[in-house]
């Protein structure tokens, strides 16, 4: 189907597993904040010191950054650059692509180091990759079986109109 390239669906179970995985990464890498973003810029989850952080904007800009870097990679004949690192005066950003479709962002300061973050991210990426694979399998089998109904299958025109009233 051309029209709606089927949605990206997140279920409770996988969401919890993801959060367990990135919270572990947060502890083990001594990071400040970790978030996961879909390549289209949708925030999937964020853990750590997120109170003063505009995570929605961060998600959108990260995806833009990955998209632009991906464009650069293709121009020079690379598939993608799977790791980006931005060094600041206090805080640093480590951005990597997990399972080909999700972006993992680690914000860390002098309490950690690039080496430690890289090491732990590598380990966590395998685990996250497995969760996203499970998620994709689940979505696929749901689609095949036609079992899980979209929460939007039953909405009425009135429901939609009410949003704009």
């Amino acid at each position: 189907m051309f029209a709606s390239q089927s949605s990206f669906v997140m279920y409770d179970e996988e969401f919890k597993r993801i959060n367990v995985a990135i919270e572990k990464l947060l502890r083990e890498s001594n990071a400040k904040v970790i978030f996961l973003v879909d390549k289209n810029g949708q925030l999937i989850s964020a853990v750590g010191e997120t109170e003063h952080l505009d995570t929605t904007s961060l998600a959108s800009l990260t995806a833009g950054n990955i998209a632009a870097t991906g464009g650069l990679a293709k121009l020079i004949g690379e598939k993608e650059f799977s790791i980006l690192f931005h060094e600041g005066e206090k805080d640093n950003l480590h951005i990597s692509i997990v399972a080909g479709r999700v972006i993992l962002v680690v914000i860390f300061d002098q309490r950690s180091s690039l080496g430690l973050v890289r090491l732990r991210v590598k380990k966590a990426s395998d685990e996250l990759g497995q969760i996203f694979k499970d998620l994709a399998d689940k979505a696929e089998s749901a689609e095949k079986g036609g079992g899980t109904q979209s929460p939007f299958a039953e909405i009425t025109d009135d429901d939609i109109d009410n949003l704009f009233s």
């Binding site: 089927s6 669906v9 997140m10 289209n40």
Partner: peptide, 15 residues
Amino acid sequence: MSFINYASREINCKI
């Protein structure tokens, strides 16, 4: 591609 999150009960769309 919309993002439907059953965990946080959110749906995100891109225009």
